[in-house]
Design a protein around this nucleic acid. Structure first.
Lengths: 203, 203
DNA sequence: AAATAATTTAACCAGATGGTCAAATGTACA
DNA sequence: TGTACATTTGACCATCTGGTTAAATTATTT
């Protein structure tokens, strides 16, 4: 279940992912997906019964392309600061390759919050582990205490929002696409530095 | 131009803002707006010729409800750290009162990037001023240098994303709506502290 | 090569959706 | 009161959209 065997099925699926992630469920048209795939609209329904079913597959695929790698970093035994650095650069790399993913996931999730819950329930990040690392580092005086919630949300925010806000950013600060890419790359260093700097205890 | 005189016009407009900000342009239905306003669908077109026109008014209104206050803070002569604190708490207050605004603006902007450019062109924030403040503070050794772009994007990110990601956050960390509100309130202190901490030069 | 099954298509359908219009209702004013 | 004007509505229309179906085409099996 969930596998793609035929060649055309693969083509259709990629087309669907492209259109859905760019336009969202409501903005996407089955006809547009068919055109993008270069096939007849009826073929969409032959392979993926309905728009809902096709969308569902796409959404799961997008989650599967991002979450597992991030969760495995979170759940690793890596030291706290390394974890922050690795998480950031991995997440930024993923989104650099698929800039629409961030906006897509958050937007569709607000349309149907239950969607992610399933994915998270079956293999969520082990927040207890991260919590322990924070407590240890705070106990030893290495860092100032910060609740896990805020630390995680801070990382997500600093990483994901620039992609969602790309048009705003490129409008505010005159930027060509290459400049925006460079700007994002700078953040692979800047974001973890900033997070670490903000919690590291001052001498 | 752009004013609302009649009582029903006001009711319709509020209904439209509610529906559009929650569902987006593509997800919104004229019938739903009419129902929300408790009037006939034809009346929508009587007051606001088309869905596009109505949406445009709503979008402009939302921008006008947020941007000017933020811009005036940015353009004020307030000291850098105060500016960061005031900007954050004002922005969070605005979004707390209208949690859908953030996702709405960013999503619709990626559908039509030109929309904001107009609003920004006529009265954008004076980034040169902020830049000077950064340079001064960096020159005097008070802070570590940071490009304006990153500083501004960092603030936007830490403030706006939690609202966009609300369902994700409430799913990851078991949170009831009240808890989420409290979580957001905590950030009015935490975010500026974090930003300032991350740039303040260490002794 | 014939028969069977899988893939692909053109044509079509039903319901939804943005939009129109003529009639009805209400309001102000002479 | 009657008349001009604005407001509101129900009914209707054209188009779009997801989905179906029967036929055509291609691949597979015997």
């Amino acid at each position: 279940m969930g596998t793609i065997d035929s060649k055309t099925e693969e083509i259709i699926f990629r087309a669907a992912r492209k259109v859905f992630t760019r336009k969202g469920f409501d903005g996407a048209r089955m006809q547009e997906i068919a055109d993008e795939a270069g096939i007849n609209k009826a073929l969409l329904h032959y392979y993926f019964r309905s728009k809902d079913k096709l969308f569902d597959r796409v959404f799961r695929d997008v989650v599967k392309m991002t979450l597992p790698r991030l969760i495995s970093i979170m759940n690793s035994e890596m030291p706290l600061f390394d974890k922050i650095r690795t998480f950031t650069s991995t997440y930024i790399d993923i989104l650099s390759g698929n800039p629409e993913f961030a906006g897509f996931v958050f937007h569709e999730l607000s349309r149907n919050p239950n969607r992610l819950l399933e994915s998270l329930k079956e293999s969520g990040p082990n927040l207890r582990l991260l919590e322990n690392q924070i407590n240890e580092a705070a106990g030893s005086g290495e860092i100032e205490y910060i609740p896990v919630t805020h630390l995680v949300v801070n990382m997500m925010s600093l990483i994901a929002l620039p992609f969602i806000a790309q048009p705003v950013i490129m409008g505010m600060f005159p930027m060509k696409p290459e400049n925006f890419d460079a700007f994002i790359q700078e953040r692979k260093e800047l974001v973890p530095q900033m997070i670490i700097n903000s919690i590291k205890r001052r001498p």
